[in-house]
Computed example of a mutant assay.
Amino acid sequence: MTGAPLLAIDGLGVRFRIAGPLLARLAGLQSRFIDAVLDVSLAVAAGRTLALVGESGSGKTTLARATLGLARSHAGRVRFDGIELAAGARHAPALFRREAAFMFQDPVASLSPRMNVQSLIGEPFAIHRIRDADPRREAARLLDLVGLPAGFAGRYPHELSGGQARRVGVARALALSPKLVVADEPTAGLDVSVQGEVINLLGDLQRDLGLTYLIISHNLALVRHIADEIAIMYLGRIVERGPTAAIYARPAHPYTAALLAAQPDPDPTRRRAEIVLEGEVPSLARRPQGCEFRTRCPFAQPRCAAEAPTLHDHGGGREIRCHFPLDRPAPLA
C-alpha cells in the first residue's frame, strides 16, 4: 500500500460484560467479559475495497460498528484520512460522520416504515442541518444514481422489493457524498440475479465516485469479484489477510482453505482438495489455549496447543496467524 491509508485500524478491541464477579466465579468463567474483537489492525487505501470474511459470530460486524463508533471499543485506535478518532470514533468530529456511511445488513428493516423514500433519503441532510438542499431534487438525483425512477420517492418501505430497498439504502448512504462506505452483507437475502445487480452497482459507484469500501460478508463468490484485499476473521482475530487473487489461488491458513473448499463449484468435473473442520466453534467465554483454531484444525500439532501464533508477515503483502501454513512444508510431528 502506497501513501497513507484512508482508514487505519490499530490494535482495536471490543469486549462485552457477560457476568458479575460472583457469577463468573461460580460458573467457572475465565473472565467476566467476552472479547468479540481482539487486537485487530487493518488499513484500507482510498478507492480500494477490503472485505472482512468469516463465519457468523466471528466479529466482522462488531469490528465495523466499532470503527464507526456504533459500538464501544476498549482498546486500540482508529485513524480516518489522517485524523485520529478518539474512543474508536464514538466521539468523532462531524466531518467524519459525513464522510463515512454505513449500509445495514437487512435492507428493509433499516428503513423506517413511517417514512417514504424521499424522507428516508433526505434524512442525512436534516441530521447534519444542511438547509440549502432541496429534498425533492436530491431524492431524484440519488434515486437516478442507484438506478431507480424518480417516482419511487413517494413509496414506503413495504412497497419495495428486497433489491429496491437495498438500492434505497445505497442512495441514503451516498446522500452526503462520503469517502468511505461500510457495507454489512450487501447482498444478504437477495436473489442471485439481484445480487449481481447490486455488485455491479457498487462497482460502478466506486469507479464513478472514487468510493472506498469496507465490505462485510461470508459470501466468498461476492468477495472474489468486488474486493481488492481480504481479511479472514476467526473468534474476533484476523487469521489471514492479503490480496484477493493471491488468497484464492493459494490459501495459507487452514481456516481460509476450509472456507474456500466449502463453496459450491458449478463444474462437476473439477476436483479440489476438501478440508473438513471437526467440532463446533469454541465459546468466546472459553477460548482454547494456544492456537484458538487448533480444536477444529486437521493439521494441528503439539506446538499449536502450547503456543499461540502471532499475526506475522507471510510475503507478497500477506499476513497469517499460523505456525504451519499450508503453502509451506510442516516439520515432522
Rank of each mutant, 00 (worst) to 15 (best):
residue 4 A to S: 15
residue 6 L to T: 04
residue 7 L to V: 07
residue 12 L to F: 06
residue 12 L to S: 10
residue 16 F to Q: 09
residue 17 R to Y: 03
residue 18 I to S: 06
residue 21 P to M: 08
residue 27 A to N: 13
residue 29 L to G: 14
residue 38 L to S: 14
residue 40 V to Y: 12
residue 43 A to P: 08
residue 45 A to R: 09
residue 46 A to L: 01
residue 48 R to C: 07
residue 49 T to M: 10
residue 53 V to H: 03
residue 54 G to Q: 08
residue 55 E to D: 05
residue 59 G to W: 11
residue 65 R to D: 02
residue 65 R to M: 12
residue 66 A to P: 07
residue 68 L to V: 12
residue 76 G to L: 09
residue 78 V to S: 12
residue 81 D to N: 15
residue 82 G to N: 11
residue 86 A to G: 03
residue 88 G to N: 09
residue 88 G to E: 13
residue 92 A to N: 00
residue 94 A to D: 13
residue 95 L to M: 09
residue 100 A to M: 10
residue 103 M to Y: 11
residue 107 P to S: 02
residue 111 L to H: 09
residue 111 L to G: 12
residue 116 N to I: 06
residue 119 S to E: 15
residue 119 S to K: 15
residue 123 E to G: 12
residue 128 H to C: 11
residue 128 H to Q: 14
residue 133 A to I: 13
residue 135 P to T: 07
residue 137 R to V: 14
residue 137 R to L: 14
residue 139 A to S: 15
residue 143 L to T: 00
residue 146 V to K: 13
residue 149 P to L: 03
residue 150 A to N: 04
residue 151 G to I: 03
residue 151 G to H: 07
residue 155 R to S: 11
residue 156 Y to E: 02
residue 157 P to C: 06
residue 164 Q to T: 03
residue 164 Q to A: 06
residue 166 R to K: 12
residue 166 R to H: 08
residue 167 R to L: 05
residue 168 V to C: 09
residue 169 G to I: 01
residue 173 A to Y: 06
residue 175 A to V: 00
residue 182 V to G: 07
residue 189 G to K: 11
residue 191 D to G: 11
residue 194 V to A: 14
residue 197 E to D: 14
residue 198 V to D: 00
residue 200 N to K: 13
residue 203 G to H: 09
residue 206 Q to R: 15
residue 207 R to M: 03
residue 208 D to Q: 15
residue 215 I to V: 13
residue 216 I to A: 02
residue 217 S to V: 01
residue 225 H to D: 10
residue 226 I to D: 05
residue 228 D to L: 08
residue 230 I to W: 07
residue 232 I to G: 00
residue 234 Y to V: 01
residue 234 Y to T: 06
residue 236 G to W: 00
residue 236 G to Y: 01
residue 238 I to Q: 02
residue 243 P to T: 04
residue 248 Y to C: 01
residue 249 A to E: 15
residue 251 P to D: 04
residue 252 A to T: 05
residue 253 H to L: 01
residue 256 T to A: 01
residue 258 A to K: 04
residue 266 P to D: 00
residue 270 R to N: 10
residue 270 R to I: 06
residue 270 R to E: 02
residue 272 R to I: 02
residue 274 E to Q: 15
residue 275 I to K: 03
residue 278 E to G: 11
residue 280 E to L: 09
residue 283 S to W: 05
residue 289 Q to E: 15
residue 294 R to C: 08
residue 295 T to H: 07
residue 297 C to T: 11
residue 303 R to P: 04
residue 304 C to I: 03
residue 308 A to K: 08
residue 309 P to M: 05
residue 312 H to W: 06
residue 312 H to V: 13
residue 313 D to G: 07
residue 317 G to V: 06
residue 320 I to D: 05
residue 322 C to V: 03
residue 327 D to G: 02
residue 329 P to V: 08
residue 330 A to I: 12
residue 330 A to G: 08
